[in-house]
Nucleic acid binder design. Structure first.
Lengths: 174, 174
DNA sequence: ACAATCTGTTTGACGTGCCAAACAAAGTAA
DNA sequence: TTACTTTGTTTGGCACGTCAAACAGATTGT
C-alpha cells in the first residue's frame, strides 16, 4: 500500500509548480495550522486566481483536499510527495555546498530547479551519498580534503576568462 | 568577448526544448554536414511545424542561423551552449552511474532532465568533481569503495517497502 | 511537361502556468 | 442595516511547446 506512491510519482511526475504548491500547503499547515487559497498564493507570490486554477488538477489527482470551509490539506500521497521534494532540496543543497563548494545562494537556486525532477532511485542514492559524506569518517574527510585541493589550472588561461579560476571545461575553449 | 556567453546564459537560460534543438543541430552538422528543419524535427521526434515555430525564438536570440538555402547552423554562442549542455549531460551521467551507482538507463533519464538547468558555477564544479573521481587516485578509490559498501539498513524494514533495499529516507516513514 | 513528392510555413487547437480584472458570497464594521 | 473588506472563482489574455491539417514553392520522376 504505501509504495503505490512511488509508482504514482514515477508515472505522473510533479511539475515545478505542483511541487511548490504541495510544499507551501505542508509548511502552512505546520506553521499556522491552516492553509487557504489566499495563504498559498501569498506564500508562492502568485495571484489568488492563478492559485485557485492551479490547485484544481492537484485536487483531481487526489494530492490536495479541501474541507467544507475551504481549508486546504494534503492527502497521504500529497504529504509524502511534498516531503520527498523537500528532502531532495536539502540533500542537493548539502551536496552542492559541502561537496562541490558552491556558493550557498547559487546552490539554493540550482537545487530548487532540480529538486522535483529526480527519480526515486536517484533521490535515494543522493540522500545516501550525502549521508555518507556527513558521516565524517576518515575516508570521507580525506576525500573532501583532496577534492578541494584539486583545482586544475587551465593551460590556455587568459585574462578575460572567468571560468579559468576554477576549471576549464574541455569543450569550452576560449 | 568570449565570456559574454555565460552572462547571456545566466540571464536567459535555455529551456529543456531549446537545449535539445541546439544539440540536435550541432550533432546533425557533425554527423551529416547539414541540418534542415526536417532533419531537426526527425531527430527530436516532433513535427516539422512545431520545429519551424520553435526555432524562431532561437534565431531571434542569435543562437541559430539560416542560410539562403534554408540550411540551419549555430552561431558561436549557440555552439558553446550546445556544448555546455552536452558536457553537463556526460558529467551528470558519469556521476550518477559511477558515484551513485544508479542504473544506466535511469541515469540517462535523470541527467536529461537536469542537464540544461545547472548554473555555470555548478556545471564547472560538477565537471571538476567527476574529473577528480575519474583521476583514480588512491583517495578516490578508497572513497568509492567505502561509499559503495555503505548500505544503511532501514530499522523499520517491512516486506512491502522497495526502498529499504537501498536506503530509508528519514522523512518517508512507512 | 506534368504529376508526385519533399520542404518549410502557417493556422487553429490543446495543456501548462501565469496575470489582471470582474464578480459573487461571506465576514466585518459602523 | 448598510457599507466595506476578504475570499475564492471565473474570464480573457499572453507565452511556451506540442499537434494535425492545409498550403505554397521547390525538386524529382517519368
Amino acid at each position: 500500500m504505501p509504495n503505490t506512491i512511488w509508482k504514482e510519482y514515477e508515472a505522473n511526475p510533479l511539475t515545478h509548480s505542483a511541487a511548490h504548491y504541495l510544499m507551501a500547503i505542508k509548511n502552512l499547515l505546520i506553521e499556522r495550522g491552516y492553509a487557504r487559497v489566499t495563504d498559498v498564493a501569498r506564500e508562492l507570490n502568485i495571484t489568488r486566481g492563478s492559485c485557485s486554477i492551479s490547485l484544481k488538477p492537484l485536487k483531481q489527482r487526489g494530492l490536495v483536499t479541501v474541507d467544507e470551509n475551504k481549508f486546504l490539506s494534503l492527502s497521504e500521497e500529497g504529504r509524502r510527495l511534498a516531503e520527498l521534494v523537500e528532502r531532495n532540496d536539502e540533500v542537493l543543497q548539502s551536496f552542492m555546498t559541502d561537496v562541490l563548494g558552491i556558493d550557498k545562494d547559487q546552490a539554493e537556486i540550482d537545487a530548487c530547479k532540480i529538486e522535483h525532477l529526480l527519480s526515486i532511485e536517484t533521490s535515494v542514492k543522493m540522500a545516501n551519498f550525502v549521508k555518507f559524506i556527513e558521516s565524517n569518517q576518515p575516508v570521507t574527510k580525506n576525500f573532501l580534503k583532496a577534492l578541494h585541493e584539486h583545482r586544475p589550472e587551465c593551460k590556455e588561461k587568459t585574462e578575460n576568462c572567468d571560468l579559468c579560476d576554477t576549471h576549464c571545461l574541455a569543450t569550452l575553449e576560449h
